[in-house]
Design a protein around this nucleic acid. Sequence first.
DNA 1: TGATAAGTCAACCATATGGGTGAATATTGA
DNA 2: TCAATATTCACCCATATGGTTGACTTATCA
Lengths: 110, 110
Amino acid sequence: MNDDERLSRILKAAGDTTRRKILTLLVQEGALRVTSLASHFEMSLNSVSKHIKVLEEAGLVTRRTLGREHFMAAELEPLKRTEAWFAELKSIWDLRLSALETMILSEDDQ
Amino acid sequence: MNDDERLSRILKAAGDTTRRKILTLLVQEGALRVTSLASHFEMSLNSVSKHIKVLEEAGLVTRRTLGREHFMAAELEPLKRTEAWFAELKSIWDLRLSALETMILSEDDQ
DNA sequence: TGATAAGTCAACCATATGGGTGAATATTGA
DNA sequence: TCAATATTCACCCATATGGTTGACTTATCA
């Protein structure tokens, strides 16, 4: 998987309210089991399990299995990719603006 | 539409490669027409038009119509919401970690 | 005025997504 | 050993998504 697909996965995973809530819960509570996470939502355990899988595939959550219990933990590092993308956009934007400025200034010279 | 839905829209809009490319083009080139944008992609004008609509509904793009031409421009401000969300997550994370640290230190006391 | 150009709208298609249920698997504990 | 627990897997369903084509509207300009 290339960087672009990875970024798409992260953004798509983060683009769902339930999944963002799961992430928030993990960030504030630390590692939690699937059932424990599911108790916060009005949807089946299975649906929550599927959301967790999406987060996991985006690298936003890691799993530690102890016996029959799966402990999920938030992994914020991948979100840096989205910040990096935004920062890149802003830098391109600034480049263009400064180029425009230079153009206007040189026109003033004439 | 509440903040959460708005954030979902932004993240979903940004979660597609084609749409991110459109945003990048607009950031580096400034306002561009739909046809001009579409020329960069191997898909129909209509498909690009639909992607633009998604970006527009997320507030990531604005439209200025002059006669039959529609000029699209990038709007980076909504992306700050995603940064704010990330920042909030990080601050919750730090809160928990410092609470943990305090706990461990007080245990050392005993 | 009439052809062409720029876009959107509407309908369609295949696949993805978010939800559900029931069965299967693996671990625990009595 | 056997029942209960934790979780995933395999389907199923409705709706969303990303793409297509064709028709429609509005401007432009020869």
